[in-house]
């Protein structure tokens, strides 16, 4: 077996160090080593978006990132989206809009939607559908997810 590599990152605002094999994905380390199981695995090949995390502010499929590539990176996972005692408006709007059924896609959608709203605070329906096309949901038909993101955009705008 190859020797493990030491990687040091910042995850959800805290320093996180881990040892990993070169073949291990960031998703695997997050879930199995760091016990951050909120990021989900739906395909392990970049097709479903359930594993979406922010890496230096950009949404990535963590199943396609090698853990060793995370050296020095700042990572936000679903566990880091809520602000202390408060849900993030996206989380609140997902709940109010019933934008989840089974909920397995939800962490990925919320993280991807956060990336979208960070970059584009007033997205059109088209923008939302386009930007979230890399996240699959088999339960909702997307209608309520799109509305939740629209509502979150409005709520965030009100906040600023």
């Amino acid at each position: 077996m190859v020797k493990k590599t030491h990687v040091s990152t910042t995850i959800n605002g805290e320093t996180a160090e881990f040892l990993c094999e070169p073949r291990q994905s960031l998703l695997e380390i997050l879930r199995d080593t760091l016990e951050l199981t909120g990021s989900k695995e739906g395909c392990n090949n970049g097709n479903c978006g359930a594993c979406t995390v922010l890496m230096d502010g950009l949404p990535v499929n963590s199943c396609l990132v090698l853990a060793v590539e995370a050296e020095g990176a700042t990572i936000t996972t679903i566990e880091g989206i809520a602000e202390q005692a408060h849900l993030h408006p996206l989380q609140q709007c997902f709940l109010e809009n019933a934008a989840l059924q089974c909920g397995i896609c939800t962490p990925g959608f919320i993280v991807a939607a956060k990336a979208l709203l960070d970059r584009n605070p007033k997205p059109t329906e088209h923008d939302i559908r386009f930007e979230l096309a890399g996240n699959l949901c088999r339960c909702t038909g997307y209608d309520k997810i799109v509305r939740a993101v629209q509502d979150a955009a409005a709520a965030l705008e009100g906040k600023h």
């Binding site: 849900l87 997902f94 709940l95 989840l100 909920g103 939800t106």
Partner: peptide, 9 residues
């Protein structure tokens, strides 16, 4: 069960 499902818990 909503909060647990939007926070990854």
């Amino acid at each position: 069960d909503g909060v647990d499902k939007v926070t990854g818990r």
